[in-house]
Amino acid sequence: MPRLKPYRNRSRRSGVSAYAIGKGFILVHFVRDGTYEYTDAKPGRMHVRNMQTLAEAGIGLSTYISRFVRGKYARKLD
């Protein structure tokens, strides 16, 4: 598993604490619910790219996931 980077959490209210980005995927660690993998296959390339951009910006990732992706993750890692 790739090493997770701390999420900057610029809003100070995010449920996301860390993430890792790779070609065609993003791993997102939620404060209360563990780590999930999102891939180009599920939920799709557009969502993964948007999530990668938001993760690097440090704002909006948790909101994006809850609004547009929800339970469409490839797998739960822990």
Rank of each mutant, 00 (worst) to 15 (best):
M1C: 00
M1K: 03
P2G: 02
R3A: 15
R3S: 15
R3G: 11
L4H: 05
K5R: 14
K5Y: 05
K5W: 03
P6T: 09
R8I: 00
R8K: 15
R8F: 04
N9F: 05
N9M: 07
N9H: 08
R13Y: 12
S14D: 09
V16E: 08
S17A: 00
S17I: 10
S17Q: 04
S17P: 00
A18E: 09
A18T: 03
A20T: 02
G22F: 12
G22P: 00
G22I: 00
G24Q: 04
F25G: 04
I26V: 13
I26S: 02
L27H: 15
V28N: 08
V28H: 07
R32P: 02
R32N: 10
D33W: 03
E37T: 08
Y38C: 05
Y38R: 02
T39D: 09
D40S: 12
D40E: 12
D40C: 01
A41R: 11
P43S: 13
P43H: 11
R45I: 10
M46S: 14
M46I: 06
V48Q: 05
V48N: 03
R49M: 14
N50A: 13
N50I: 04
Q52C: 05
Q52L: 01
L54Q: 07
E56W: 01
A57P: 01
G58H: 07
I59Y: 10
I59K: 06
I59S: 11
G60D: 13
L61T: 02
T63H: 11
Y64Q: 12
I65V: 12
S66D: 13
S66C: 06
S66Y: 04
R67M: 10
F68T: 04
F68G: 00
V69F: 10
V69E: 09
G71N: 13
G71C: 04
Y73K: 06
A74C: 09
A74Y: 15
K76F: 08
K76E: 14
K76L: 06
L77V: 13
L77S: 12
L77I: 10
D78N: 14
